[in-house]
Write a protein that binds this DNA or RNA. Structure first.
Lengths: 335, 335
DNA sequence: CATAGTTGTTCAAGCGATTGCACAAACTTA
DNA sequence: TAAGTTTGTGCAATCGCTTGAACAACTATG
C-alpha cells in the first residue's frame, strides 16, 4: 500500500536509519548520500508515517484545544473562530497539527484534557478562557503537562498564558468616553467566575477614580452573562428607574451586551447615549443612529501567541516568554 | 512515566495480549479474567497509548477538516463554527478526534489534504463547501481515501455528502411570504456557477407558480455574489425604477445580501418591506423596523451529519446512507 | 607504518499496542 | 478412557520509524 522507509532504503541502497537521518537532515550523513536518498524519496513519493514517527519519537506534533462554551454563545461570537485561526496558523508554520473538542461544561473540559494527556494524543494543550479555580489548570499543572491558557489564570506561576490587558482595555475605553465629555457612565460586566470580568471592572473603576468621577452604584451591573439579553435587561432597568437621570454612556464587556443595550435604547427612540462593547464583532451596518465603539481584542493574535508560547516551550526554545499581552484597540463602528 | 499495557499485564498476572483483549471486550476472555484485569487497570489508572494503538491497528481514530476560507468571511459567518461543533459532537460520541487546518486558497487546501492522506494522520477527511471542479475531491477520489463533503458536489457518484434542500428552502420561505399576503416579490440570487444558486431560484419560481403568481422580470436579480454590496445595489435599482411600484417582499440568498437590502431600505426610511435571507447569521436585534426572516441552514446538523456519514462509512456500518439532506427552518429575527 | 581520531553508515533495540496462531486445560462424547 | 471439542490464555510477529552504540573506512599524527 504505502511506501515505507524500508522501501526507500532498499531502493537507495542504504539502511533505514540512514533514510531517517536524511529526513531529519542529520549532520552525520554525507551530502552525497543525502542527495541520493532525497532523489529516491522524490521518485517513490515517500511520505513518513506520522503515527510511527510519533510512537518512536514519543511526541505527536499535535496540540489539543479544550474549549468549553455554550452553543448560543459560540454562534454569534467570532472570538473562537478567530482564535482558532491564529492557533492553526502558528501550528502549521511549525509543523504541528491541531485537534479540538467542544465541550458543554467544566467537567467535560476536564475529561477531554485527561483523555488527551493520558492517551498521549497531544504534546500540549491550549485552554480557552480560564475560570476561577480552573480544574483543568490544576490538573495539567499536577501532571506537569505542557499547556497554555488564553485568558490570564488566577495563579500565573509556572503557567504559559496570553491575554489582553483587560484592565487597560476598559481603562482606555472609559478614559476615551470621559475625554469625550461623559461623566455619568454605566458599566455592565460579565460572569463573576471569570478573571476577565474582574479585570474589566477594575479598569473601569480605576479610570473613573483617576478622573475624579463618582461611580453611581445603580449604574453598575455585575455577574451577568455576555448576552444581548443581559445587556437589554440592564438598560431596561436604567431606563425604568425614574428616580434618577440616565447615564450618558454605557461601558459593556461584550458586543452582544452592547447590542442588547442598543436595542433597549432604540425601542425608546434614544440615540444620544454612547455605548461601548468588546470584540468588534458586530456587523457593519447594524448600528444606525447611536454611536458605538468596540474594543477589538485581536482574537487572532491571542490564538497565534497562545500557540507560539506553547509550541516554543515544547520545543525548548531559548528565551521564550511565558506569556504575551496582546494589545487591544478601539474600533469605531459605523455603516 | 506512563503506565503501559505490560505494567497492567504484570500486575494482573496475565499477558499483554489478554489485557488488550479485555480492553476491546473480546468474547474470548472469561468474565473472571476481565474483572481481575479491569480492577488492575482501575488501580493503576492505565490509559491505552493512543499512538501505539493507532500504529498497531493501522487507524488513527481521527478525522481531518479541510477549510478554505478568507479571514473576513469567517469572522462574520457563524456557519463554520457551528458546523465544527456538530462535527466535534458526532466525533466525540464515536471516539474520534478531530483535526482542523484553515487554509487561504485551494492550493493550500490540497496540500493539507495530501499531507493528511500521505502521512496517514487521519482516517477520513471532511471538506467544506465544494468548489466547482474541486481539486481536493478529485485527489481524494483518486486515492480512494474516505471523505465527506459539506455542500453537494458537482458529481455525487461515490461521494459522501450532506447539504440542505435548497429548492425546498426558497420554496418554503416564498410560500411563507405569500401566505402572509405578499404577491409582488423580488428575488436576489447567488453566483451562476453554483448549484445552490440554481436550486434556490427554482424553489422561488416553483412557489410563485404553485400560488398562481406572476414573476415580474424586473424584480429578479441573478448571478451576483453573496455580498451586502450586491444586495444593496439590487435594492437601489428597485427603488430607483419609478416606472413601477415596489415589491412588498424581497427574497435573498444570503443574510449579507439581505443586510444590503435592509440598509438600502433604511436609507430611504422604508420599513414595510419584508426581507428574507439565508444562514440565520445576522445578530438578533439588528433589524429594527423592517421585518426580517432568515432561512436557518442548520449548520450544526450539517456538520453532525457530515461526520456521521464519514465515520459510519469508515466503520463500515451497514446501511449507511451516502448523503443526508438537512432540513432548513425559518427563523424570525427580532430581539 | 602503527596509532589515534574522524566521518559515514549500519545494527538492533526499542516505542506500546494488536492479532493470528499455538497450546493447555476443561469438558464432551462415544 | 481415549479421542475430539470447546474455551481461555500466551507467544511472538508486526505496525514504521528513531536513535544510541558499534563498526568500517578513511585521514591525520608522531
Amino acid at each position: 500500500m504505502g511506501v515505507t522507509i524500508n522501501d526507500v532504503a532498499k531502493a537507495a541502497g542504504v539502511s533505514a536509519s540512514t533514510v531517517s537521518r536524511v529526513l531529519s537532515d542529520s549532520p552525520r550523513i554525507s551530502k552525497k548520500t543525502k542527495m541520493k536518498v532525497r532523489k529516491v524519496i522524490e521518485e517513490l513519493e515517500y511520505y513518513p508515517n506520522f503515527i510511527a514517527r510519533s510512537l518512536a519519537s514519543n511526541s505527536t506534533n499535535t496540540i489539543g484545544l479544550v474549549l468549553c462554551t455554550e452553543a448560543h454563545y459560540l454562534i454569534h461570537n467570532s472570538f473562537f473562530i478567530q482564535a482558532m485561526t491564529g492557533i492553526s496558523t502558528y501550528a502549521q508554520e511549525n509543523g504541528y497539527n491541531v485537534m479540538y473538542a467542544f465541550n458543554k461544561n467544566e467537567e467535560e473540559d476536564l475529561n477531554i484534557a485527561i483523555k488527551y494527556v493520558s492517551s498521549k494524543s497531544v504534546d500540549g494543550i491550549i485552554l480557552f478562557a480560564s475560570r476561577v479555580n480552573d480544574k483543568c489548570i490544576s490538573y495539567l499543572k499536577k501532571e506537569g503537562f505542557p499547556f497554555s491558557v488564553i485568558g490570564r489564570p488566577d495563579e500565573t506561576d509556572g503557567v504559559l498564558w496570553v491575554d489582553n490587558d483587560n484592565f487597560q482595555a476598559t481603562y482606555q475605553v472609559t478614559d476615551y468616553l470621559i475625554r469625550d465629555g461623559h461623566t455619568n457612565i454605566a458599566f455592565i460586566g460579565g460572569p463573576a467566575g471569570f478573571n476577565v470580568s474582574k479585570d474589566r471592572f477594575e479598569g473601569f473603576k480605576r479610570s473613573m477614580y483617576v478622573h475624579g468621577l463618582d461611580i453611581n452604584e445603580s449604574f453598575i451591573f455585575l455577574d451577568g452573562d455576555f448576552s444581548s439579553e443581559f445587556g437589554y435587561e440592564c438598560m431596561k432597568k436604567l431606563l425604568e428607574n425614574e428616580s434618577q437621570s440616565l447615564p450618558t454612556a454605557v461601558v459593556t464587556c461584550d458586543d452582544m451586551q452592547a447590542l442588547g443595550v442598543l436595542n433597549a435604547l432604540s425601542e425608546k427612540g434614544i440615540d444620544n447615549i454612547a455605548v461601548t462593547g468588546f470584540n468588534n464583532n458586530l456587523l457593519p451596518g447594524i448600528n444606525r443612529g447611536a454611536k458605538f465603539t468596540s474594543v477589538d481584542v485581536n482574537a487572532y493574535k491571542l490564538g497565534y501567541y497562545a500557540a507560539k508560547v506553547l509550541i516554543d516551550n515544547i520545543l525548548g526554545k531559548e528565551g521564550t516568554p511565558t506569556h504575551y499581552i496582546v494589545p487591544t484597540s478601539l474600533a469605531e463602528n459605523k455603516l
